[in-house]
Write a protein that binds this DNA or RNA. Structure first.
Length: 613
RNA sequence: GGUUCCGUAGCUCAGCUGGAUAGAGCAACAGAUUUCUAAUCUGUCGGUCACAGGUUCGAAUCCUGUCGGGAUCACCA
């Protein structure tokens, strides 16, 4: 759907006709004319000046008059220096709206028959989701929606880190201190319940550690280390080592991990139970956020994968074996380092699992590519992973993308779990909904609705504010999350865009006439209508661009600008009591299509629209 | 130190595949509702686009360097 095709071809032809230069219409760029000048679209003639050795204004004038002669849709032009500003006919704009109205899924591309897995969320099972996960989930989900709009067949997936020392800590703490309590018996959401035991473990461990530091044994460790640090500083750094050596709790946790790896029945049973609680909790959060997954992978199933893939690659000469038996890949000729793939005891490392999981996913889904939504601290990891996949000639290697994003900071600085500054996802969601409730009560607009309807609207508004606040920022940028601003519902926010949509729905409810009658009779459009249409015709390009760059913020900014244009239009132009019947119908259709595009754009961001607010 | 990402208004962010006088929102101030939802609209105030060079008719945008901040450079995941 290229609305400006005719203009580009016209310009290409005019350049050839006037100067004999051949410029393909795909290479002709027209941009929207800035509002301080007269015109709708601008063609910059400077690039032609060098070749033609003529004055910019002369070229612009000649092309302008040629276009007016040759194209019906160009009704005027104005030249400012090397800028040719073209004015298009009202019928052109009206025709654009006609074309948009005829589309079933305006903005969406047709299928490209390619399948892509989008991985996001991927939590650990020892604690609840936090603000960082929210950014991850919003980005992943949104990119998934955007890729669907670009014609891809999408599978949403995640890799759940359900094994390892962390979950064993929670298990151990529950065994020791839980006295048989459950999420049901305590009324605590499952993921928080398990997370609480993780915290309990840490607390007990710290106590044990500080007791140890008073002992003679500790004194010997300190002295024998020959460290120049004070005793206090020394033991700050020694914590991990203590966990792996002297700590009783550490030993117990490690024993539990070993038992798990051996397949000990009672350990597995406890592990399954605790993870089950966590999943039940996660499901609630996912449901509240409006996201779901098609295919979930668990680290407990995949952590042994990859070894055979590596051995296969070893046989084919992609990798090499060191004297100690460990397997490496040398990526120095690609600007990277040497990377270990298998330890000398044959066990795998992190990247080995990823290689194995990727191949497993290919066996399961035969995808053409994958998008990994993972924070930018792992940029190098994915560079290495993708290079390895390429060298092994994996069939999906060319379709691998790392959707990298910056960390979320608080106004007070970084989130740190040790300092208790982590913002919990469920708390945050509750807060924004409560804020929506307060503001809604002041307005009183939805009071007459049923309780469940009201709750549904408040959820949409609160989450709309939160999600938009996060998704409007470009992924690669580190962002500051100010809880106060995240619940703002005025200005450049989700609710502002929702409000434009709600106004449109209100107009539509009150439009009782038959909108399906012809609206060709409308002939002269005003600047507010034109601005809206000019904005609407960009939508397919915006979707394409967002897909190519895996950048939802493109859509977010587009939706805001469109809502802004609509609010202005709504304020300046009468719709239901327009001057003429033709105007009334035209404006209703224009409103309806704007509403449709706003809703579609917000859907691509994972944000729902209320009908009233 | 090597690599990499970021640096635009007091704050949060757009604009970056080179185009006209760099835009929004928030905050502050002044206005708009007998009219379709005021979570709206209009106006005022606010800038060394980190800095210095270079390429170009033209640079916030591309290149080089400097400064500042983050990340990464594990037989951790």
């Amino acid at each position: 759907m290229d609305f400006l095709y005719e203009i580009r071809v016209g310009l290409s032809n005019a350049i050839f006709e006037c100067y004999g230069l051949n410029i393909h219409h795909n290479d002709i760029q027209v941009s929207e004319t800035r509002k301080e000048f007269n015109g709708d679209y601008t063609y910059v003639v400077f690039p032609l000046v060098k070749e033609l050795k003529l004055k910019p204004t002369d070229i612009a004038k000649k092309l302008g008059s040629t276009l007016v002669d040759n194209l019906d849709i160009v009704v005027g032009y104005e030249c400012v220096q090397g800028f040719l500003n073209l004015k298009l006919s009202d019928s052109f704009w009206i025709d654009c709206l006609h074309r948009i109205s005829k589309e079933n899924k305006y903005g969406y591309a047709t299928s490209n028959y390619k399948k892509v897995l989008v991985e996001f969320a991927s939590p650990n099972t020892n604690k609840p989701l936090h603000l960082g996960h929210i950014r991850n989930i919003l980005l992943g989900w949104s990119c998934s929606r955007i890729l669907i709009a670009n014609g891809y067949d999408i599978i949403n997936t995640q890799i759940v880190n359900d094994r390892g020392i962390a979950i064993c800590k929670s298990m151990l703490a529950w065994q020791k201190f839980g006295s048989g309590s459950t999420p049901q018996s305590t009324g605590i959401k499952g993921d928080h319940f398990v997370g609480d035991y993780y915290v309990l473990f840490e607390k007990a461990f710290v106590e044990e550690y500080s007791t140890f530091q008073q002992t003679a044994e500790a004194q010997i460790v300190y002295v024998e280390s020959g460290s120049s640090d004070t005793k206090e500083d020394f033991f700050k750094k020694y914590k991990n080592q203590y966990f792996n050596t002297y700590s009783t709790l550490g030993a117990e946790a490690r024993t539990m991990l070993l038992n798990w790896e051996k397949g000990d029945q009672s350990t597995l049973e406890l592990w399954r139970q605790m993870n089950q609680w966590v999943y039940e909790g996660f499901d609630v959060t996912y449901r509240n956020m409006g996201v779901d997954f098609d295919s979930i992978y668990y680290e407990s199933d995949t952590y042994l994968l990859g070894k055979d893939v590596i051995n296969d690659g070893l046989d084919k000469g992609y990798f090499y074996k060191k004297d100690d038996g460990s397997v490496w890949v040398d990526l120095s000729n690609a600007g990277m380092d040497q990377k270990i793939l298998l330890r000398n005891d044959g066990t795998s490392v992190y990247i080995t699992q990823d290689i194995g999981t990727a191949r497993q996913r290919y066996l399961d889904h035969k995808m053409d590519g994958m998008v990994y939504t993972v924070a930018d601290e792992q940029d190098y990891h994915f560079k290495v992973l993708f290079e390895i996949a390429k060298r092994m000639g994996e069939p999906y290697a060319d379709g691998l993308h790392h959707l990298s994003y910056g960390m979320v900071d608080l106004p007070t600085g970084k989130m740190k779990s040790r300092e208790g500054t982590v913002v919990d996802a469920d708390d945050l969601i509750d807060e924004v909904i409560e804020e929506a409730r307060i503001l809604s009560a002041e307005r009183g607009e939805i009071e007459s609705l049923s309780k469940p309807d009201q709750e549904n609207i408040l959820r949409k508004i609160g989450l709309g504010a939160l999600k938009y606040f996060i998704i409007k920022v470009q992924p690669q940028k580190r962002m500051t999350f100010d809880p106060k601003e995240s619940v703002d519902m005025q200005g450049q926010t989700g609710p502002y865009i929702q409000n434009a949509y709600v106004r449109i729905q209100s107009v539509k409810r009150k439009m009782t006439d038959n909108v399906h009658i012809e609206w060709n009779q409308y002939e002269e459009i005003n600047e507010f209508e034109k601005t809206l249409i000019r904005h609407l015709i960009n939508f397919p390009d915006i979707i394409k661009q967002a897909g190519e760059q895996l950048d939802p913020s493109t859509i977010a900014n587009f939706a805001y600008a469109l809502a802004k244009d609509y609010h202005r239009f709504y304020h300046e132009v009468r719709i239901l009591n327009a001057e003429t019947e033709a105007a009334k119908i035209f404006r209703t259709v224009l409103s309806d299509r704007t509403g449709y595009v706003l809703m579609t754009a917000m859907d691509l961001l994972g944000i729902e629209m209320p009908e009233r607010m």
